Amino acid sequence: MAKSYASTVINASAEDVWARIRDFNGLATWHDGLVATSEIEDGRAGDQVGGIRSFTLTDGTHLREKLLAHSDLERSYIYDFQKTPFDVDNYEATIRVSPVTDGGTAFVEWWATFDCDRDKQEHWVGFFASQVFQGGLDALKAHFGA
């Protein structure tokens, strides 16, 4: 099993950062330029476990992801792929916001575990860490005035 990981410190409170990302359907509002359209299927709310986020990237790629867990207490959610163009299996991702008590900032981490062909592992680990996760974290930093 492979693991892809990215993290950062954002100059805002954990509560403010969580408020920005807590809606599972809100990816288009905070992940700069990645998502063209997004909706939660079956009329579920963006924090309702079991909800499926159906979205299209700006390049036309369509994905579906299912919300597996959502916690305001832990400021985190976990999701998996239901439909993806990526050549990975058993993908499960977590995004979590923690307070940095010294200074009132937020520590944000985003990671995924997945299976893939051994010869593609380095590619997918790098792709998710830099293109997806770090891109989103950079957008959050910019929003909060890094």
Rank of each mutant, 00 (worst) to 15 (best):
residue 78 I to P: 02
residue 79 Y to N: 02
residue 79 Y to V: 01
residue 79 Y to M: 06
residue 80 D to A: 11
residue 80 D to K: 12
residue 80 D to V: 03
residue 81 F to S: 08
residue 82 Q to A: 13
residue 82 Q to P: 11
residue 83 K to A: 15
residue 83 K to W: 12
residue 86 F to Q: 07
residue 86 F to N: 13
residue 86 F to R: 09
residue 87 D to V: 09
residue 87 D to M: 09
residue 87 D to K: 12
residue 87 D to Q: 10
residue 87 D to H: 09
residue 88 V to K: 05
residue 90 N to Q: 05
residue 90 N to H: 10
residue 91 Y to N: 07
residue 92 E to L: 02
residue 93 A to N: 11
residue 93 A to C: 13
residue 93 A to P: 05
residue 94 T to Q: 10
residue 94 T to W: 00
residue 94 T to A: 11
residue 94 T to H: 04
residue 94 T to Y: 06
residue 95 I to L: 08
residue 96 R to H: 03
residue 97 V to K: 03
residue 98 S to I: 00
residue 99 P to L: 00
residue 100 V to F: 04
residue 100 V to L: 15
residue 103 G to T: 05
residue 103 G to E: 01
residue 103 G to Y: 11
residue 104 G to Q: 12
residue 104 G to I: 03
residue 104 G to W: 05
residue 105 T to Y: 02
residue 106 A to Q: 02
residue 107 F to V: 02
residue 108 V to T: 02
residue 109 E to W: 08
residue 110 W to N: 03
residue 111 W to Y: 15
residue 111 W to Q: 14
residue 111 W to K: 10
residue 112 A to C: 12
residue 114 F to Q: 01
residue 114 F to G: 00
residue 116 C to P: 04
residue 117 D to W: 02
residue 118 R to A: 15
residue 119 D to Q: 05
residue 120 K to H: 09
residue 120 K to R: 11
residue 120 K to N: 14
residue 121 Q to G: 02
residue 122 E to W: 07
residue 123 H to I: 13
residue 124 W to C: 05
residue 124 W to G: 01
residue 124 W to L: 00
residue 125 V to P: 07
residue 125 V to F: 11
residue 126 G to L: 07
residue 127 F to I: 07
residue 128 F to W: 10
residue 129 A to G: 10
residue 129 A to L: 08
residue 129 A to S: 14
residue 131 Q to K: 14
residue 131 Q to L: 13
residue 131 Q to T: 14
residue 132 V to T: 11
residue 132 V to F: 12
residue 132 V to Q: 08
residue 132 V to C: 12
residue 133 F to K: 03
residue 136 G to H: 00
residue 136 G to M: 03
residue 137 L to T: 08
residue 137 L to N: 01
residue 138 D to N: 15
